[in-house]
Design a protein around this nucleic acid. Structure first.
Length: 835
RNA sequence: GCGAAAGUGGCGGAAACCGGUAUACGCGCCGGACUUAGAAUCCGGUGGGCUUGCCCUUGGGGGUUCGAGUCCCCCCUUUCGCACCA
């Protein structure tokens, strides 16, 4: 399979890569003149796992195509790259191979940098950032301290998600279907002291600002809306029978206040703090212990389960005594961890009530449907509801809430599903949290002058017990920044999603040492104009980054509300229908392909085989096809350039007089080219369907080939024809440059251009003065396509009918003109003859 | 279960705008040229079916229309997201 000539393009690609690097073609300055139209093109930076994979190649090829295209269009383009280099794999590799995470990470960065460079991406490499450098995380520590001072970073004891295989806690966003997002280990619950970011303070803004994200896919916006999960409801207090103290009341949350008269039991989450107090029997206590155990060890509820506590609550609206149950389907982390259960009008309550033989009272009737099948969960008219009987559900919710507020037994509330972001990780390879614990002063932040708090190097990795930092006395023991007394450092490190929440701001001032970034430069470059990455970050990274930018804004660093104006989520790269993975053995290594075909071929195939938002089916033969095309392009242009002495394209030669004498076939191709130029602009700026642009260029090349093969390409051709052909080649090369930059730069040079293609500018259409006189129209008889005829563009209905009736194929179906009953004629398209 | 998106040749995938010639481009396949031979390259063909000039074809079935990928009704499948969020 290996090409005997290892990539005939390798030298060409190297030549251009070296030139771009030497001339700093893609470098931009931090703060350019204001009159430059800016464009910030950003791709999600990689974790330095060792080698880049096809997913990266796809992501970065898309970004590079956009960046290069926008440069051609005169934009001043910031296109940076870096490494999200804190994280678990480094530490796990260290444990396994007995090396140091730092060494592992930085050698990976080195090899991945070489790989990325060999693909010819137009990054401003001067801006490379590495998040595990203390020059980067120093600022993150500063932000943490400022957030701490504002109460946006706080520590509390709570039950948190624990991944036993990663040996650390996880944020809610990082738990998928009860499993760890990284390793798919089942999550258990632990009670631990943890640091949190108060993202809930921003819940409302994060939700309402989604409206501003007009350049985001609907899908991602919906996922974020659902994640934030705003709901309006009523918080209501139920007294416990026999208890008189105010604080022994149970607070429940419901969105269905209209069903209050149908509440036949109260259900508490197994971990609800009141459970212990109200358990009446030994049997109940035993059951409770078991259920808590189950809840702690798995988030996956397969069957509804619960038990009666022995206690009763009083429905404040009808003073009815109803039993209090503990039920596994009630979640402690949502609402108040306690609900009023209305089995007649809620599926979950119904299922539970049936299982435990609890009373079911119907209080809402469906006016459309009298079948009376329960549970009925829609809105309807109230029955059996005292003075609220007869109201619609909607009215009743308002009236009942007002009544509850009047009686002081409840209030209207807005509830969010979003919880505060747990950022503590019990691992070593992350950004140290800049807090010390002093016996006298409590939790105290470090002084800014003591930053960065460096991650120590002299650690031992055993993979056993707690984090290596927690065992390192030289790190732990320190002095209190306030009283200078003995103090101990926080040993948790930060979630690595904190680094990725603001890296794109640091790219703006990557080496500034006096502050995290220059504010004036940031206000010039931000927001990011186009962000490209995988959809798997729809709620994690993309929500955290939105939050972090709002926090930085409120702390006075930034003046934007949203970081990413436009978002493109690319699909996966799959092979034989499934995701590439080691276990499936269907991995394609970019290095092998670069060796065999060159970077341009991989780039071309990646963009050509599918539009970016869809999954891309990898095909080795498809890659061969792309390679063939690039060869063909190169061959045609080289041989054309070799036997012509035509000057480089210059519009002055294209006078209308000169054009008049030119070959018609060529003029047709130019007309076609004009259409492609037009279409390309909208495809590149709106839909990013690069595949269609590429196929248009293939068609153009095919047509040029036909033209040359038809014998008109050689000696007979006049100089003006050669000139036009040169112009067409030149244009095609510019259109394709964002996708396959090396070969296009080379061809552009071969065509006699002295300035680099990067500075070529976008194309203008060339008026040929040639218009088609005739067109093909379809002839239908009784709605069925029977033939095609050629007519003049301005022919009227009668003329077209005459031509059509004269057509041999049509004659077979229409014996005589007198049979024609009706004619439907669509100008320049179709004639339908009804007989 | 709920929500969203999507179903087009042997395959990856276009376009079809207000209903008006479906299947561009690439892959694969078939045939040919070059070659001692192969690879590469080039040229030609290629939606399916059969009775070879006719029928069928945009997931399936109905409907509206001179005409349906497109509009209406019903159904199926796949992918993704959320899954006890009260």
């Amino acid at each position: 399979m290996k090409k005997e000539n290892p990539g005939s393009f390798i030298e060409i690609e190297k030549k251009w890569q070296d030139r771009w690097e030497k001339e700093k073609t893609f470098a931009v300055v931090d703060h350019p003149k204001e009159d430059n139209k800016k464009y910030y093109c950003l791709e999600m930076f990689p974790y330095p796992s060792g080698k880049i994979h096809m997913g990266h190649v796809r992501n970065y090829t898309i970004g590079d195509a956009i960046a290069r295209f926008e440069r051609l269009n005169g934009f001043y383009v910031l296109h940076p790259i870096g490494f999200d280099s804190f994280g678990l794999p480094a530490e796990n590799a260290a444990i396994k191979n007995k090396t140091n995470p730092k060494k592992w990470t930085y050698s990976n960065i080195e090899s991945m940098t070489i790989q990325l460079k060999s693909l010819g991406f137009s990054y401003d490499w001067n801006r490379k950032i590495v998040t595990s450098d203390s020059s980067y995380y120093k600022w993150e520590q500063l932000f943490f301290i400022e957030m701490f001072k504002k109460g946006l970073a706080y520590k509390k004891l709570s039950s948190v998600n624990w991944c036993e295989s990663c040996h650390t806690t996880l944020a809610n966003e990082q738990v998928e279907n009860g499993k760890c997002w990284r390793c798919e280990q089942e999550i258990t619950i632990k009670n631990m002291e943890q640091w949190f970011f108060k993202i809930t303070d921003y819940a409302e803004e994060l939700l309402s600002d989604i409206e501003k994200l007009t350049g985001w896919p609907e899908k991602v916006k919906t996922m974020q809306k659902n994640w934030i999960g705003k709901s309006y409801g009523l918080s209501l207090f139920f007294k416990i029978a026999g208890e008189t103290e105010e604080d022994s009341r149970l607070e429940i949350f419901t969105t269905r206040a209209d069903t209050i008269f149908g509440a036949t039991f109260i259900a508490l989450a197994p971990l609800h703090p009141a459970v212990e107090k109200i358990l009446k029997t030994g049997e109940a206590k035993a059951k409770s212990g078991k259920l808590i155990q189950k809840t702690m060890t798995s988030k996956d509820i397969t069957e509804k389960e619960g038990f009666f506590t022995g206690s009763y609550a009083i429905n404040p609206f009808n003073n009815k005594k109803i039993p209090i149950y503990v039920a596994n389907f009630v979640l402690m982390e949502y609402g108040t961890g306690a609900i009023m259960s209305v089995p007649a009008h809620d599926e979950r309550d119904y299922e539970f009530a049936k299982k435990y033989n609890i009373e079911i009272t119907e209080v809402v009737k469906d006016p459309q449907n009298t079948s009376g099948i329960l549970p009925f969960t829609g809105d309807g008219k109230l029955i059996n509801s005292s003075k609220f009987t007869g109201l619609t559900s909607q009215e009743a919710r308002i009236r009942i809430a007002l009544e509850a507020e009047k009686l002081g037994i409840g209030k209207s509330v807005v509830n969010y599903r979003l919880k505060d972001w747990g950022v503590s990780r019990q691992r070593y390879w992350g950004c140290p949290i800049p807090i010390v614990y002093c016996e006298k002063c409590g939790a105290v932040p470090l002084n800014e002058k003591d930053l960065p708090l460096e991650l120590p190097d002299d650690v031992v990795f055993t993979g056993e017990g707690s984090s290596p930092l927690a065992k390192l006395d030289s790190f732990i023991n320190t002095k209190c920044p306030v009283c200078d007394g003995p103090a101990k450092r926080e040993t948790d490190t930060m979630d690595t999603f904190v680094e990725s929440s603001w890296y794109f701001v640091r790219y703006i001032s990557p080496s500034l040492s006096s502050s995290p970034f220059n504010k004036i430069s940031a206000s010039y470059w931000l927001p990011v104009d186009q962000y490209i990455g995988g959809v798997e970050h729809a709620v994690m990274h993309l929500l955290y980054a939105r939050f972090f930018i709002k926090v930085l804004r409120d702390m006075g660093y930034l003046n934007i509300d949203e970081p990413f104006k436009n978002l493109l989520t690319q699909g996966m790269v799959v092979k034989e229908g499934s995701k590439m993975s080691k276990s499936k053995g269907n991995i394609v290594d970019p290095d092998d392909l670069i060796y065999k075909y060159g970077a341009d071929t991989i780039r071309l195939f990646t963009l050509f085989a599918a539009p970016p938002e869809k999954d891309l089916e990898w095909s080795d033969q498809g890659v061969e096809g792309s390679y063939r095309f690039i060869n063909k392009l190169y061959r045609m242009i080289s041989s054309f350039a070799n036997n012509t002495g035509v000057p480089a394209p210059d519009n002055k030669i294209l006078t209308s007089k000169n054009l008049e004498a030119a070959n018609v076939k060529l003029k047709k191709i130019v007309n076609e080219l004009n259409k492609v130029i037009q279409r390309t602009k909208s495809e590149m700026e709106e839909r990013f369907h690069f595949n269609t642009v590429i196929s248009s260029c293939m068609e153009l090349i095919n047509h040029i080939n036909e033209y040359e093969k038809s014998g008109q390409g050689e000696e007979k051709t006049g100089i003006i024809d050669k000139y036009i052909l040169k112009l067409i080649f030149n244009s095609i090369v510019i259109i394709l440059y964002p996708f396959i930059p090396h070969i296009c730069a080379e061809c552009y040079e071969i065509l006699g251009n002295t300035a680099g293609i990067e500075k070529a500018g976008w194309l203008v259409e060339i008026e040929t003065g040639y218009k088609e006189e005739t067109c093909n129209i379809a002839v239908q008889v009784n709605g069925k396509l029977r033939s095609q005829v050629t007519v003049n563009l301005h022919d009227n209905k009668e003329a077209v009918l005459r031509i059509a009736l004269n057509d041999e194929k049509v004659k077979k179906y229409i014996a005589a003109e007198s049979l024609v009953k009706n004619i439907i004629y669509v100008q320049n398209k179709l004639i339908n003859i009804i007989i």
